[in-house]
């Protein structure tokens, strides 16, 4: 009876608490019905084979799919992955390579530098590749789980009057724009990850990082989350195909995140390395206060620029939801 109980446990452990006892009892009596009293192991196995894989049996009791991404979404998932992955790999590879080149110092021998550089570049690409597949997969899993499934909506409820007019060109979201968005995400996250190598203060034949490594590390989780959100939103736009009001609202929320994040980032007191600022002042013959002023000026112009872009993007999202422009009754 050890195998019988093990089988039943395999099924019931996948079920909610309130179903377990009843299902276990029913399976127990069913298996007893299928076999003679005190069955041999072979006989018991025969009965269990008829009942089949306990995982499948449990999923049928649950009436829930066994898949994370089902056939309806799978083709889109693959096509998104085919776009996201090369972009992510290319951009992470290029930015890492730039970082390696800029960060090159004479101290190491050529051979050493090349090997180290390759390790750094490949490492960055692998990391970014895994991250992209994970986040894209997560977005699709969530869509699969929480979107109203086609199977459960009775077809009889559908009526031609529900048909929306074919989206006006203005409302349509071109795939190119979504892909452009992915490229944009990949570029800024690539720059961010290599900021200490790429964003530097250069003078004569020297350079030093302009930003503090600690501050960059501090913001990293938020930056990754923001990038994931941006990619997730891009996928959502791709799947939907045209602008809707909820989408415009999400766009607003997303842009708010962007702006708040940028504000927090730019105004972080430790963002700029004091050393670099001092060097900057020395180079231009500015006093510490003047250099500080200039820094603030740069920060706020940058922020205003982002604010303007985000505002335009948000407003554009809402404008695009309008179906006007000759919609017939």
């Amino acid at each position: 009876m050890m195998y019988r109980d093990a089988y039943i446990a395999e099924v019931t452990k996948r079920l909610p608490q309130n179903m377990r006892e009843d299902v276990a009892l029913e399976l127990e009596s069913t298996i007893a019905d299928m076999t003679s009293e005190n069955p041999s192991q072979e006989e018991l196995f025969g009965a269990l084979r008829q009942l089949g894989d306990p995982v499948i049996l449990a999923s049928r009791y649950l009436e829930r799919p066994l898949h994370v991404i089902g056939p309806a979404l799978y083709p889109t998932f693959i096509s998104i992955l085919k776009i996201v992955l090369p972009i992510a790999l290319a951009v992470s590879g290029i930015t890492a390579a730039l970082g390696v080149i800029v960060g090159y110092s004479d101290e190491a021998s050529w051979g050493q530098a090349i090997i180290q550089g390759i390790i750094q570049i490949v490492g960055a690409m692998i990391q970014v590749g895994i991250q992209s597949v994970f986040w894209v997969g997560l977005v699709f899993a969530l869509i699969e789980r929480y979107s109203s499934s086609r199977d459960t909506v009775p077809l009889s409820k559908w009526d031609p009057t529900q048909l929306k007019p074919v989206a006006l060109p203005k409302r349509q979201i071109s795939r190119a724009s979504v892909i452009g968005g992915f490229v944009w995400t990949a570029i800024w996250i690539g720059i961010y990850l290599n900021a200490s190598n790429l964003i530097r203060l250069y003078w004569e034949d020297q350079s030093m990082p302009l930003l503090n490594e600690e501050a960059l590390q501090f913001f990293l989780p938020a930056v990754v989350a923001l990038a994931a959100l941006e990619v997730g939103f891009g996928i959502y736009k791709w799947v939907k195909g045209f602008w809707t009001i909820p989408m415009a609202i999400w766009n607003l929320v997303f842009n708010l995140f962007w702006i708040i994040g940028t504000l927090l980032f730019l105004t972080h007191p430790e963002l700029f390395s004091a050393e670099a600022l001092q060097q900057f002042g020395n180079l231009l013959g500015l006093s510490a206060a003047e250099a500080e002023n200039m820094k603030n000026w740069a920060i706020w112009s940058l922020f205003v620029l982002f604010l303007v872009i985000a505002t335009i993007d948000t407003v554009d999202g809402f404008l695009r939801t309008r179906t006007s422009g000759g919609r017939k009754k």
Binding site: L27, T30, Q50, L51, G52, I56, L57, R60, Y61, E63
Partner: peptide
């Protein structure tokens, strides 16, 4: 009928 279909069907 597949038994793994029948019992869940009865429950449904």
């Amino acid at each position: 009928i597949d038994q793994s279909t029948l019992y869940p069907l009865l429950r449904r």
